[in-house]
Nucleic acid binder design. Sequence first.
DNA 1: GCAGTTGTCAATGGCTGTCG
DNA 2: CGACAGCCATTGACAACTGC
Length: 703
Amino acid sequence: MTGSREEAKAHAELAWDAALGRTAGSGGSGSSVALAVARLQDPMMRHLYQEVNELEARVALHSERQVRECRMAARCEADIMKAQAAPEIEAAHNELQSLQARLAEQEQSLKRSSRRFSDMQRQLKKCSLPHEQERLADEREHEASCEAIRESEATLQEQQETDRDLLDIELKQSAMAWMDKLRKEFPEDSRCANLQDGLEKLLALRGSRVEEKLLTWFRAQGSRWTVLDLSKAVSELRIAGKSAGNRWHQACADKTLEGLKAADVNVIYQAPVFDARLGFFGIVDFLIRGEDGDYAIWDTKLATHPTAYHVAQLIGYAVALESMLAPTGGVRVTKVGLVLGEDAAEQGVVKEISIAELKRPFFESWWAFRDFCNTFRPDLPPDPADEPKASLGRWAPAAEEMLTMRDDLALVASMTRAQRAALKLAGYKTMTSISQMPPSALASVSAVSRIKLHTLERLVLQARLQCQTRDNTHVAPASVILPNAARVLAALPADDSGDIFIDLESLPWNKPPAAAEYLIGICTRDGAYHSWWSHTRDEELENTGHVLNFIFDRLQQFPNMHAYCYGHYERSALSRLAAGLPEDFKQMADELIKTVLIDLYPILKGSFVLGLPGYGLKQVERLFRTGEQRTSRTSDVAAAEESMIAYMRWLDNPDGSCVATSSTLRQIEEYNCEDCKSTQRLLAWSSAALYMTAPRKMRRCAS
DNA sequence: GCAGTTGTCAATGGCTGTCG
DNA sequence: CGACAGCCATTGACAACTGC
């Protein structure tokens, strides 16, 4: 049966092929169409064809079902695998995101590092660091020449012992050194009265904490380190020595030598060093004796990045120590270390610096400093405007006074030192003179000074408005709206009753577990004030969440509201704070920063020239606070610093645990609330100014 | 066609001024 | 003390132009 069936099928195929016009097989039998048609007419054949068709259909159906089943199975399998792999995928996704974040962070860090590096290079240049070739010059020859100078000046130095502080200052900036020298030599001089050192004192206090932390670290290392603390002995000698005359430096240094003789001591805390020939005295934070008899000098700093004068100070210590130990066989200190910031101190992390090649510039600076001391003249002050304002530190008010007295160009807000120098060369030496520059002279002055015309125009206008305003502090400062103001101010959203005004108070150098942003304040348009206090990092994170929720809840109620601030600090702080929160909060914060937060500073700076010496909020307030007094403030400029100092004092010595019980915290909150309200009033002032300048048609629309 | 000059643009660096 | 934004000048690469 099987044989006949197969035979039949073979026939059928042949016929079928023939019927379709396909080339006949090699068999040759029945290859013509006529034959095939004849066979198809045969009932038996027709039946067979039908059977074949059915079979083929069934096969097709079967294979289709199989394919479908296979597909379904594959899909199921994929789903199962997907479900099984979901956590892994999620983890990989998270890892990718975190890697991307780290990459971004590292890029940022790299950018910052490169910036710091260039800053360091600049600072080192200031300290007359020799070029590479010069550095390779014969060091011994140099030291010999230094030695000769030292010998020749030895007699003078007996009378001119000075201390480490002035060296620091010399290497910082000359105007500061000059003022410090003035205070040292002529403490009664009226210029010394104009000193503002609240923040400096605060920083000194923080600096001593870093020192204490490193001391704790040394002591926690067990038997590895035996620490001798000379701080008490030194302070006693200092007090006794100062009343008895001026010969206590050597006595102090002898304490260090005594300490070094003790076999079991390998760390001396607060070790005085003194070189009589150099006239150099200093107190080393940590003097460390290594196992093989070498010495290391470590100094703690609050700063997180080293500066040239930190290094110079350490070289001074090293040189003095070498001279002290010379009679007992001599020693060379080739490396010194800086412990930068509280974190490093807590973990004993030191940044080692090789000083062999830096001694030469140190000596150059040192002898320049001695020249400066020897030829000091109180009637020849340096020009404070030749140095960056930030470098004037506690003498900034004194410098300001000096500049005001001679109506210096540096008083013009936003003028750079380079622009000032160029304008002086062009014959404009005072703010008044530049304010009176005739329009016809602008082009030629621009060409001579190489200051772009539009920049020069703005500076002249700035000077003019400042001159107009400075003589009359009781009226609102003069202001001019810039041509592109309408475009800049157009970026301001329409007022909304849900708008809020936000201001932060912080100690940016605070590290966990302490809070950096200790107070977040928000004012609403109806005058209500909300505040969130954080004294620990945990509270800070929790409060960040509360603030974000507060704003987003408000956003639900007032979809067109905005959060206004002044300066970019709030923006940076919020994103920094949110980075420590879960992902959804982070996204909320991003969203908020992008769409809701408005910084008024660039808007103001881009739209107006104001007759004010600066564009800080405290200065700008004069636009709308004429005749008003800020509550309990002696100096508006110092207000932010005062808030920080007050908070620091509260941390050390709380006069109550919360705003309800502590008048310090209450005062800080008042400052903060005032800043929020000032931001609100500034917005109103800016909008009103825009409205006044807008064409009447627009005003009608707006009203 | 060539060399020198000028203009343009983006990147970079220095500095200032905010905030705290 | 620190972060950072923004302004401005400078620099360098390249293209376009100009004069010989």
